[in-house]
Each structure stands twice: as structure tokens, then as C-alpha cells.
Nucleic acid binder design. Structure first.
Length: 875
RNA sequence: GCCCGAGUGGCGGAAUUGGUAGACGCAGCGGACUCAAAAUCCGCCGCCCUUAAAAGCGUGUCGGUUCGACUCCGACCUCGGGCACCA
């Protein structure tokens, strides 16, 4: 054994050992319990960032721990290889996305190997491989057959200068990112997946995911947004009927959850895209301008929700379904075409948005619900949240004096009788639009024939292969300009036809990759029998930012596969761990009138200024130093220039130090603050562990441990070691708090360092303690532990070692320290035998001198004894 | 705007089911070793008042429940994630 720790040599040796033994390649083994441990696959952006290191280290710790517990552990890895950044790179440097992506994958794979993850690389896949995405296409065709996939128009961001569709990310302050032109909305035909068909099931099944974080389930439930309400038809007045020229339309249909407020309706409002708005705009230029104005701006919900509530009357009317009153119909920008019917009934007295709108437009406010406690009888001039509460109906004709449930029931019945309403469940969840007008994605397998219409590509012609030599230039999809791609013959009539040039949303790729890992080489089918052994995923690890979309789409896609008989489970991920972001300090400098520049914290030096406050400086290229501003902590990102390159970290300290620091600095669900000093602390601990083993081994092999013949301090160290075993297993296996598991091993090493005992028994106890420390830390720092395990004289490889049971005899305690409080304040401590009963503990507490001082001569009113912990004396 | 989180010493964090607030680490201070520095080892380290001890105060703010609250409840403030075409 080397006297000093050489991370590079230790890590190379361990990785070569694992590679030669193919330690992490796994097969189905029905005799052993399986554990499928999966981290979200990365987008191959070029290099790993610290978020990846954190994500994959968490997964690796869990995978290695479960392996030690005897599970047959699968930990695969792959690449979410389609997406926008490859096109952006192509625009700026002319390299085809395929080449850029594959180079990035090669580089990042090497980085991952250097970090020593226990990955079965034989299962690696990339979503840009035709052998993978052909099954996206195959399943899409099955969905098309069943009506789960369908075509309709949808709204997109349109850059009028580049003549291209923009992603939300490419819209900055309502303008195109490259052209700066104001973005417009445009309706184009797109493919949708009918996820709302599964809305009810996706919502209910959340209850069957007890090992998902509560907040993720809540977010998904809110996203699905099931609400029970009523669909109400307001019959057209003559003016609206005339304008619409649609005899089939009986009236304006709205959805409401508050049909109890029906008598408070003073106006109706429709979205700018609603057919009535279009019809009314034909004869009213001002309204046409307003509708046109609503079409400008982005399609993002956050923008729509924060914009000023504007509206304009259509001049048309519809009739109240029960009173026949003529109600004005407005166009309002806060009504969304995508939700419900694209029209709402306006009840200013009992809905905050309607109240704001009515106040601004001078529309009437009619109170129809009052609280049971009589706290108000009339809605006032300023909005109060209580106005939206359920209460008792008033001013509602024959429906007065009813509570919410009663009013809903009777009013709905009255509407049903007239054929103007019915109960309905409405979801906030919308169908999933998967068409992207982009090149670097999975082609949608349909053909447009002038004679036959839209024709699915026959299965035997799959995959529709994406050509890999095209280079996007920012002016639209190059597939749409590539005759070699789009010119084809119709599979039905054999005539000339045009291939669909839209590609699929990359969320499709990531909706089932975890299933394919079970059988990455299956050629004849999407999945095969091996899936039944490995799936569902036992532990999924990834960023909280995926809490809704990716996880919901995966749950949906899995159900579609289930209904097609491809898999037999409904939920793909049994346990979910959502890791927090990695943060670092942000430093910037903005010259007057110039552009703000960011500086990496590694370049910034801190010193005390004349007044004692911190001054931050960087060395300027030309002369002297430049004073920069500390903006606080921010997510590590290219744009803030505050990233830490894992590569240089591994080169400087080794993979184990990188892994140890990221696991120790904070619990996985919380944000992680980068700290160079913390990294050094992690490196220091590994050196200390190495030195302790080196020193111990240098004294020769100790004799076998005789547990029954130990001194007090020897028993104490042994107890600490076995307690550590229990705590680390619980912290890693149940709590996923790796930071406290590591702290426990640090405490054990501190105890070993204090254990200054050269006797045979003392050395035997130390030997056991060091073995336990190395074993317990091995999921986190596998390389150095691999070497130390050998140094401690083990015949077996650590990677094949089992997690030992703690020795109950070693854990046993003879006496306990009990805390004594007087009126809830800590006043003393007493030591009692471990078996002492409540009366003994109580007597010992009351007899304690410190305690008696605080009791003085006051009568004891009550004594609370918490067994094994504390006594509280109340006076 | 809507939905979901988080706030504890100089710093990262610990306190697992309502029961000792500050484990472990970082930084700092003092000491040992060294010609010296680095590394390493030992000790101290919430605030306040103190020679010291003891007392008092203390988990974003305000209020409540309880013998007892970082933990539960209500209101507020600040920071972060998501909002359907970034992944």
C-alpha cells in the first residue's frame, strides 16, 4: 500500500478492475430480486455539468447500495439526442446536428466513465438512432389507428421575418430571438395525442404512487385540474344568429363550476379566436383590430395571465337560459380558446377576474350569493376574496335561499329540462401537441396525398429515416426544402405525394426510453419479454423541473403501451427522487452604457475594502484589476458564466472527491451551493481515511476480535462502528440523506483517530471499525474504498461484498443519559440504567441537584416522562 | 397572474414520529511540528452580559395550539422551480 493517496492511480486501477470483470453488465435472473435504478438521461449538450454529476452520483450511490444488499441491479444510460440546441449549434457553426450530437455523446460518455458510475454500458441508446425512433413512429401509427393521435390546428409563435416557428424559449419579451421582430400567433395543422382521454386515470392513479414526493403529486393533480361543473348554453339573440350565419348553432356554450351564480351573469365573454368574435369582426373594423391585437404576442400562459385585462363588445347578444334577458357578448383577452368552450359567463360579483373586467368596462355587478354568517349582503366597490366563497343564493328568482349544492342541483335540473345545460367534468389538462416544425427530431410517419388525403406510412416502410446531412440555417425546417426527403409516392394510390416534414416533440423520445433499456437490441418489436423482469423502474432520479411535463407524458405513454398490450404495468416509476439545482456565485461587471459581462467565481478574488466590506476583483486583461459586482447565488449556467467544469475537478482531485463533495454538501432534494473550500474538505477527508488505514495496516495484521473480552473504550468504539452501519443503511436506503450518512462515517473515523490503543484487542476493534467505515462509504467513493478494502487484507472484491448486519450485542447499551427540563427549559441531566422504569427515571430527575435548584419550594404540578429521552417537570 | 417548494451560527447543513437547537464539514482564532511555508495534528468557536460560572436571548416576520414548537395551525415577507415548442 502506498503511503500517500494518489487519486488518479487508484481510480484507474478500480475502473480497470470493474471493466475487466464486466461488473455492471447484468442479465435477467428470476432467482434474485431486481432493482432498476434510473437517472434521467442527459441531453448531449457537449460536456457534463455539475447537475449531471450530482444526478448520476445520487443514482450510483443507490445502485451500489442496493447491489450490496443483494439485488440484481440495472443502471443503464443513454442520450436524449434530438432537440433544439443541435440546430442552434448548426446555425452558428454550420456543423450538421447529427455530427455535433454524436461528437458530444462520445465526449460525455468518456466523462461519465471517468466518474466511475456502475452503469451497464452494453444497453446504451441514443434517441436519434433510427433503431430507437422507429418505435416512436410505430406506436404513433397505432395511436392514429385508435384515434389517440389526431390532426387539428394549433397555435404557434411565428417569426414574420425569418418565416419560422419559434419555441417559447426563442421568444424574448415578445420578440424573435434572432430577428427582434414582434412575434405573432399563427394557426397551423398539427398532430395531437389525446392525453385528456387518460386524464381521469392519470389523476386517480397518483394515489398509487406513495413513494413519489408529495409536492410532485400535488403539482400533477393541479396540472390535470379536474373540475366538476356545468355546461350552459345561452341561446343566440337575433343579432348574433344573423352575424353567425350558422343555423345549427343553438347558442353560446360556456363551462362553469359556479352555476349557482347563473343569475349574477351580466355579460358573456369569448376568446379572440372564437367563431363569434370572427363573425362579429367582419362588420366592425374596431373589433377586427382588437382581435388582430390579441393575435400578437406570445402563446405562453404566463404572459397571457399577467397581461392587462382588455376587452371589446361584439355588439351581439345571447339570452340568459332561464330569464331570457339579453346579455352582451364581449371579446376578452383573458378568455383562453384552449380551455373549456373558449367562452365564459361573466359573474362580476363572484369571480375576481370578471369583477376586474366589469369594473373597467362599466358592466353591472349583481350580487346573487351571500354568506351564511351575514357578513355582507351586497358586493362592494372593492374586490374581497370572500365574494368568491360558496354561500346562500339571493336575487335568483325561484332558486333563492339555497346552499351551493342545492343551487347547483336545482339550476342544473332546470337547464336540463330546457335542453340548455348538463353536468360535465372539465380538465385543465390539454391534449399534447407533438408536431414540431423542426429538422432534428423523429419524423412523423404520414404522407399527404392530393388524392387520398393523409395516409399513414405502412409498418413495413418504417422507419422513416431522418437524413443526417442537412444543416438548418434558422429560416425554417430544412426537411421542408429537401425534395429527397419529402417527395414520395402515396402508399394507397401510388401517385405522387408529399411526406410530412414535421418532427415529433422530444418529450416523445423521453416518454419510453427507460422501457427500451430492458431490451435495447430487440429488432422485431418495440419491447420484448425482458421488460417483464426489469420494469417498472424501482427508483427514478432527476431534476424537479421535470415534475410535470416529462413525468406526466411518460405516465400517459406507458398507459397507451399497456392498452396496446406492449407492457403490463401502468406506472413506469415506482419511486421518484427529485434532485435540487446546483448553484454558484454570480459576479458581473457592466461598463457604463455597455453590455453586462459575467465572470466565473474561480477568477474572482475577495479582499476587505477600506471600510471593511468585501471587494470583489478580477485580473483585467490589459491593466490591473477590475472591480465586479456580487449578484448572489444563481443556477450554474452558461449565461451567468458561473459553471464549474467537472472535468477539471476530476483531473485535480479525482472522481471520488467530486462525488463525495456533491453528496455531502446538502441533501439531494435541496439546492447545492458550490464551494471550493468544501471540495478541499472532501479531499482532506479521503486523505485522512487513507492515512488511518495506512497507519493501521503498517502495524501488521491484528488477531481475531474477541467481543466478550473488551475494555469500556474498546466496547465504545465497537458500538459506534455498528451504530454507523445501522445509520448509513437507513440514511441511504430509506431517507436518501447521503450527507448525514457521510457525516456518520466521518464521526466513526474521528472515533478511530481518538482510539489510541495499541493492544491486540484494541487493534482488532480498530480493524473492524475501519472495515466498516470503508464498506459504508463505498457507495459514495467506490474507487478509494476498493483500494482500501484490499489494503485491509480482504480476499474478496469490495464491489461483490454484501452489506453486513450490525451486531446486536455490539449495539447494546447499559445506561442512558436523560435530559431533565423544568417548565420546558433544559436544567439538568441524569444517567439511569437502560432498563430503568418510569418511576425510577422520575425519581432520579427530581433528585438531581440542578433540577432542585429550579424547583425551589414550588409544588410540582406535573411530571412528563418520555422513555429513554427526557423528563419535564412542570411547577 | 396561477400551481409547488424553501428560509436555522460567519458559511453549507444536522435535529428522522412534537421532546437536549447547531451533529458533520467549511471558514476563523489559538497552539504543536518546521529555518520558514504548505501539509498534518491538538484545542476553541450562536448572540448577549461576564475574569469565570450562572442567567437571559435565539431557527425569515407577527400571532396561535401545547407541559414542551425549527417541527403543527393562521397571516405576512423574501428567494427559487413549473406554466404545455429549452430539456
Amino acid at each position: 500500500m502506498q503511503a500517500s493517496y494518489d487519486a488518479a492511480a487508484v481510480e484507474r486501477a478500480a475502473q480497470e478492475f470493474w471493466a475487466a470483470r464486466r461488473s455492471f453488465e447484468v442479465r435477467e435472473d428470476p432467482a434474485r430480486p431486481k432493482y432498476y435504478c434510473l437517472s434521467m438521461f442527459p441531453y448531449p449538450s457537449g460536456r457534463l455539468h455539475m447537475g449531471h454529476v450530482r444526478n448520476y452520483t445520487i443514482g450510483d450511490v443507490l445502485a451500489r447500495f442496493r447491489r450490496m444488499q443483494g439485488y440484481n441491479v440495472l443502471q443503464p444510460m443513454g442520450w436524449d439526442a434530438f432537440g433544439l440546441p443541435a440546430e442552434n449549434a448548426a446555425i452558428s457553426n454550420g456543423v450538421p446536428p447529427a455530427r455535433w450530437t454524436r461528437q458530444n455523446i462520445d465526449y460525455m460518455r468518456a466523462q461519465m466513465r471517468a466518474l466511475g458510475f456502475a452503469i451497464d454500458w452494453s444497453r446504451e441508446l441514443a434517441t436519434c438512432d433510427a433503431s430507437y425512433y422507429r418505435w416512436n413512429q410505430w406506436l404513433f401509427l397505432r395511436m392514429l389507428e385508435r384515434g389517440i393521435a389526431y390532426r387539428r390546428t394549433g397555435v404557434v409563435n411565428w417569426d414574420p421575418v425569418d418565416q419560422t416557428v419559434l419555441a417559447n424559449e426563442q421568444v424574448i419579451d415578445g420578440r424573435g430571438w434572432r430577428t427582434g421582430a414582434p412575434v405573432e400567433k399563427r394557426e397551423i395543422p398539427m398532430y395531437y395525442l389525446n392525453i385528456t382521454r387518460y386524464g381521469e386515470e392519470l389523476l386517480r392513479a397518483l394515489d398509487g404512487l406513495p413513494e413519489w414526493p408529495e409536492r410532485v403529486r400535488v403539482m400533477q393533480a393541479n396540472w390535470i385540474g379536474r373540475s366538476e361543473g356545468c355546461e350552459v348554453t345561452f341561446p343566440w339573440s337575433a343579432d348574433a344568429r344573423a352575424a353567425l350565419c350558422d343555423a345549427a348553432s343553438p347558442g353560446l356554450r360556456v363551462f362553469t363550476t359556479r352555476v349557482d351564480t347563473l343569475f349574477g351573469v351580466t355579460f358573456l365573454a369569448v376568446a379572440a379566436e372564437h367563431p363569434l368574435a370572427t363573425a362579429a369582426a367582419r362588420t366592425r373594423p374596431a373589433l377586427a383590430d382588437f382581435v388582430e391585437a390579441c393575435r400578437r404576442g406570445s402563446v405562453m400562459e404566463a404572459d397571457l395571465a399577467t397581461q392587462e385585462k382588455k376587452g371589446m363588445p361584439t355588439g351581439l347578444h345571447a339570452q340568459h337560459p332561464l330569464t331570457g334577458e339579453a346579455l352582451p357578448v364581449w371579446v376578452a383577452n383573458y378568455v383562453l380558446m384552449g380551455y373549456g368552450e373558449g367562452a365564459v359567463m361573466g359573474v362580476p360579483a363572484h369571480d375576481e377576474r370578471d369583477f376586474e373586467f366589469a369594473t373597467r368596462q362599466g358592466l353591472a355587478v349583481r350580487t346573487v350569493v351571500v354568506p351564511a354568517d351575514g357578513s355582507y349582503h351586497e358586493v362592494g366597490a372593492a374586490w374581497q376574496p370572500a365574494y368568491a366563497d360558496h354561500g346562500m343564493t339571493v336575487n335568483s328568482g325561484e332558486f333563492c335561499g339555497l346552499d351551493f349544492d342545492g343551487a347547483v342541483e336545482r339550476i342544473t335540473a332546470a337547464l336540463e329540462e330546457r335542453g340548455l345545460g348538463r353536468r360535465r367534468v372539465q380538465f385543465r389538462l390539454r391534449d399534447w401537441g407533438i408536431s414540431r416544425q423542426r429538422y432534428w427530431g423523429c419524423p412523423i410517419p404520414v404522407i399527404h396525398c392530393p388524392a387520398c388525403g393523409t395516409v399513414p406510412v405502412p409498418d413495413e416502410q418504417l422507419p422513416v429515416v431522418l437524413p443526417e446531412d442537412l444543416v438548418p440555417d434558422g429560416s425554417g425546417n430544412p426537411l421542408a426544402k429537401s425534395a429527397a426527403f419529402y417527395v414520395c409516392t402515396c402508399p394507397k394510390c401510388g401517385g405522387a405525394a408529399r411526406r410530412e416534414t414535421d418532427t415529433m416533440d422530444t418529450f416523445v423520445d423521453s416518454s419510453w426510453y427507460y422501457t427500451r433499456y430492458a431490451c435495447p437490441d430487440a429488432r422485431a418489436a418495440m419491447v420484448d419479454a425482458r421488460v417483464a423482469y426489469w420494469l417498472p423502474v424501482d427508483q427514478y432520479i432527476g431534476g424537479i423541473e421535470h415534475a410535470i411535463l416529462h413525468l406526466l407524458y411518460s405516465r400517459f405513454w406507458t398507459r397507451v403501451m399497456r392498452d396496446l398490450g406492449e407492457v403490463s404495468f401502468s406506472e413506469p416509476f415506482t419511486r421518484l427522487l427529485t434532485q435540487g439545482m446546483v448553484l454558484n456565485h454570480v459576479y458581473s461587471y457592466q461598463p457604463e452604457g455597455g453590455r453586462k459581462r459575467y465572470f466565473n467565481p474561480a477568477e474572482v478574488r475577495t479582499r476587505r475594502g477600506a471600510d471593511g466590506t468585501a471587494v470583489y476583483e478580477v485580473a483585467a486583461a490589459d491593466r490591473g484589476t477590475l472591480q465586479v459586482v456580487h449578484e448572489g447565488l444563481g443556477k450554474m449556467s452558461k449565461s451567468s458564466g458561473n459553471g464549474v467544469d467537472p472535468q477539471s475537478l476530476v483531473e485535480r482531485y479525482g472522481a471520488d472527491t467530486a462525488r463525495l463533495f456533491t453528496m455531502f454538501a446538502s441533501p439531494p432534494e435541496q439546492t447545492l451551493e458550490w464551494s471550493d473550500e468544501g471540495v478541499q474538505g472532501a479531499a482532506r477527508f479521503i486523505r485522512r481515511l487513507w492515512a488511518a488505514v495506512y497507519e493501521h495496516v503498517g502495524a501488521g495484521a491484528p488477531p481475531p476480535l474477541q467481543p466478550s473480552a473488551l475494555t469500556g473504550p474498546q466496547r465504545e468504539l465497537r458500538r459506534t462502528a455498528h451504530q454507523t452501519l445501522v445509520k448509513v443503511a437507513d440514511d441511504i436506503g430509506r431517507r436518501h440523506n447521503f450527507n448525514t450518512a457521510i457525516a456518520a462515517v466521518m464521526e466513526l473515523l474521528n472515533a478511530v483517530a481518538r482510539h489510541d490503543d495499541g493492544s491486540d484487542a484494541g487493534r482488532a476493534v480498530r480493524h473492524e471499525a475501519l472495515r466498516i467505515a470503508v464498506l459504508a462509504l463505498s457507495p459514495v467513493t467506490p474507487h478509494v474504498c476498493h483500494a482500501l478494502w484490499q489494503a485491509l487484507g480482504s480476499q474478496t472484491a469490495l464491489v461483490d461484498e454484501r452489506w453486513p448486519q450490525a451486531d446486536a450485542e455490539a449495539l447494546r447499551q447499559d445506561s442512558l443519559d436523560i435530559v431533565v427540563q423544568v417548565n420546558g427549559k433544559l436544567r439538568g441531566r441524569v444517567t439511569v440504567p437502560a432498563q430503568a422504569d418510569e418511576a425510577t427515571v422520575r425519581a432520579a430527575a427530581l433528585a438531581d441537584e440542578q433540577v432542585r435548584r429550579f424547583l425551589a419550594d414550588k409544588p410540582v404540578r406535573r411530571v412528563i416522562v418520555v422513555p429513554g429521552k427526557l423528563v419535564n417537570v412542570v411547577v
